[in-house]
């Protein structure tokens, strides 16, 4: 079943793992929505988040902050946040903030799914 909110699509992939399609942008305009989308998922048992950045052209510091919040929420629960199909603009932000030290990256959503099984 797919749940589509205004800009984020969430697909369950196993009991504890979900895929969030980030879409064109994650920035100050929709960061709050991203946060609440993820919170709903955490409440219903999701621990691992695969973020699909294949279409993402914009990731600003507010958007990145909302991913950090998610990370802080799931890491005490032994959960993980991983990045899949990272686009160039996203890669730039990840490099700059050195967050690749925290978020594992995978070339595709499938590769991430496999690793999280």
């Amino acid at each position: 079943m797919q749940v589509t909110t205004m800009s984020f699509t969430v697909e369950p992939c196993s009991q504890e793992t979900v895929i969030v399609r980030i879409g064109k942008a994650l920035d100050f305009r929709n960061a709050a929505e991203f946060k609440s989308t993820c919170q709903t998922q955490v409440r219903s048992g999701a621990r691992n988040f695969i973020l699909d950045f294949s279409e993402t052209g914009i990731l600003d510091s507010t958007g990145l902050g909302s991913i950090f919040s998610l990370y802080r929420q799931v890491s005490p629960l032994e959960g993980q946040v991983v990045f899949a199909a990272v686009s160039r603009p996203v890669q730039v932000v990840v490099q700059l903030t050195r967050t690749y030290k925290v978020f594992r990256q995978f070339p595709s959503v499938e590769a991430a799914e496999e690793a999280l099984q």
Binding site: F68, Y71, R72, T97, R98, T99, K101, V102
Partner: peptide, 12 residues
């Protein structure tokens, strides 16, 4: 040279 942003990992 740079390291991880603050507020993410207590053991950074």
């Amino acid at each position: 040279y740079s390291d991880l942003i603050l507020g993410l990992d207590r053991n950074a």
